[in-house]
């Protein structure tokens, strides 16, 4: 019985994996390139002609670069200091993209607040506060690095005309790292991608968001993103 059950589950899981199977092949690589299989904990060094599946992830280091070949023959190049899930190269239709964006908006609405709120005045002692803070502080540098790697991956998607995929990815990064604004960089890229999709309304919203972010955390910084967003918005309005 146990064997039958395991076999059945394996069939289900394998069939799920095959359903959206997006096999890609490494056809060229240079420098530090690593891959991670599915849910593995560890990275392994990539090599030429290795086939990757949609649950796998690819990472490039300083001066690393890898070229992938899709099932349909298209090629995709990932530059240095980037991370990309192979699933991000799957075909994402505009319908899927907007469904995703809408579901994110709905999630942001949150549950309705009750009439009576439990209010806690002052809390003088919070057990475990120190530990928690230290753990958070330790995670900050890693988060910044991860954000940078993922952003570069998303930019690679945008640069190679995976426009819907890029918007999908930029939004996921925004959601995943709410504390890292990037001074509006991601929103600027989202605006550009929407312009490419001929969606001026959404593009304008993204540019406005980029300008808004810039005037917040990044006020005072000399950021090109705000200048570029304002210029793009001006051009859109014309």
């Amino acid at each position: 019985m146990k064997i039958i059950l395991i076999l059945a589950l394996n069939i289900i899981i394998t069939s799920q994996a095959l359903y959206a199977a997006q096999q890609v092949k490494i056809i060229a690589l240079a420098g530090d390139v690593k891959i991670r299989r599915g849910l593995d904990e560890h990275w392994q060094t990539a090599s030429n002609a290795v086939t990757l599946e949609n649950i796998d992830t690819i990472l490039t280091g300083e001066a690393g670069e890898v070229t992938l070949k899709m099932e349909n023959g298209d090629k995709f190049t990932l530059g240095s200091n980037s991370i990309l899930d192979i699933a991000d190269l799957r075909e994402i239709t505009e319908r899927e993209l907007f469904l995703y964006l809408m579901s994110q908006k709905i999630d942001k609405i949150g549950p309705r607040e009750g009439k009576t709120k439990l209010k806690i005045g002052r809390v003088n002692v919070v057990h475990g506060e120190l530990k928690s803070d230290s753990a958070k502080l330790n995670s900050q540098p890693d988060q910044r690095t991860d954000w940078l790697l993922e952003k570069n991956g998303a930019r690679a998607l945008f640069g190679q005309n995976y426009t819907t995929n890029a918007i999908f990815k930029f939004n996921k990064i925004l959601l995943k790292y709410p504390d890292i604004t990037g001074c509006g960089e991601l929103n600027f890229h989202i605006g550009q991608a929407f312009e490419k999709l001929n969606k001026p309304g959404q593009a304008a919203d993204a540019y406005k968001q980029a300008i808004k972010i810039n005037s917040g955390d990044c006020a005072g910084e000399t950021s090109s993103w705000v200048v570029q967003s304002e210029a793009a918005l001006k051009q859109l309005n014309q």
């Binding site: 799920q16 994996a17 959206a20 849910l39 699933a87 579901s103």
Partner: peptide, 20 residues
């Protein structure tokens, strides 16, 4: 855990089951 994570990854992240 591994199987549950894979199911979640496939159905929600890759196939957008939550959004759909």
């Amino acid at each position: 855990w591994k199987t549950g994570a894979l199911e979640f990854l496939q159905n929600t992240e890759i196939r957008s089951g939550l959004a759909e």
